[in-house]
Nucleic acid binder design. Structure first.
Lengths: 160, 160
DNA sequence: GTAAAATAGGACCGATTCGGTTCTATTTGG
DNA sequence: CCAAATAGAACCGAATCGGTCCTATTTTAC
């Protein structure tokens, strides 16, 4: 019922690379990351661009360019990352100004969806990239979750 | 990032009808529900069938047949409803026995996704149909949410 | 100042999924 | 036996997804 698309999956794998101690403070390039993760370069590039566009990564052009985290991984939330890769959370036709339902005053669903969505968001917002990337050591906001991507035949996750 | 499809939306609207006091204990038919909700009959029928197939509703054939809730609405969770309409929660290629990632021992994502997924599930499991259908009176598990369906141009939600 | 290395951004395509419709059983009650 | 109802599957167009490719643009290094 909740489906995480593959690019989100790839994106997290890539972001983990940035958290590795030996990579802290370095610019990582699309090619280098593709090599490290064994993912195809075009995909890596596309995902990185998207992350940069939404402020999760900062990009630097030119030779010796690349990407780095826009912030300390303790301050990058899963909500932000997933939001960058999957589009805005909780866009419902109900809430959409243009096509949306014009019967807010009567519609019984609207406020309920809003509340449910906030609860979901809170779960994601409470998990930092650092926690995700870590060895699950320190307490994380994780209560217990399981996730996905449902279509396509995933490339196996390479070790990071 | 989380997207609820339209049938789930319709499904909840339909289920709300079953919770209305004047409908308690009655068989409600697809045609009757379509009329009450102003949704097209085929869609209503399809959604009801799916809910029945997954045990949210119980169906009765023949004339004077119809549907009713399989359980008291206080004991039907949103997790169950959404699961019925959107398919199993948290099916990831990672976890899929057939095509899935064969590197569980190494893969850094698997347990994290599992935990995140469980957290999401817990949010949905903690909300009953009764709470959703209610006037938001008594305390509900809802912390605050907002939701959606992103494609298609939704029919406006009729009053229930 | 020029070449090389890197990102930016969008077009594109096949495959899948989604939303919705329709048709044919099957069951049940009168 | 007929009518009313669900069961279930096939089907179709449209939108989305996963992935590739191509053409700017920017920046560094020489």
């Amino acid at each position: 019922m909740i489906r995480m698309n593959k690019q989100t999956d790839y994106g997290l794998l890539l972001l983990f690379q940035f958290v590795r101690p030996e990579n802290r403070g370095k610019n990582l390039t699309a090619i280098g990351l593709a090599d490290a993760t064994h993912l195809p370069v075009p995909i890596v590039s596309k995902v990185l661009k998207r992350l940069a566009k939404h402020g999760v990564l900062r990009s630097y052009r030119g030779s010796s360019g690349g990407y780095r985290l826009s912030r300390d991984p303790t301050r990058l939330s899963l909500a932000e990352i997933v939001g960058a890769l999957e589009g805005p959370l909780a866009i419902t036709d109900c809430l959409d100004e243009e096509n949306g339902c014009r019967r807010e005053a009567v519609c019984p669903m609207r406020d309920k969806w809003e509340r449910i969505n906030s609860a979901m968001f809170a779960v994601f917002a409470g998990i930092s990239l650092q926690e995700l990337a870590g060895k699950m050591g320190g307490h994380s906001g994780l209560i217990g979750v399981g996730g996905q991507s449902r279509r396509g035949k995933a490339l196996p996750h390479p070790e990071i």
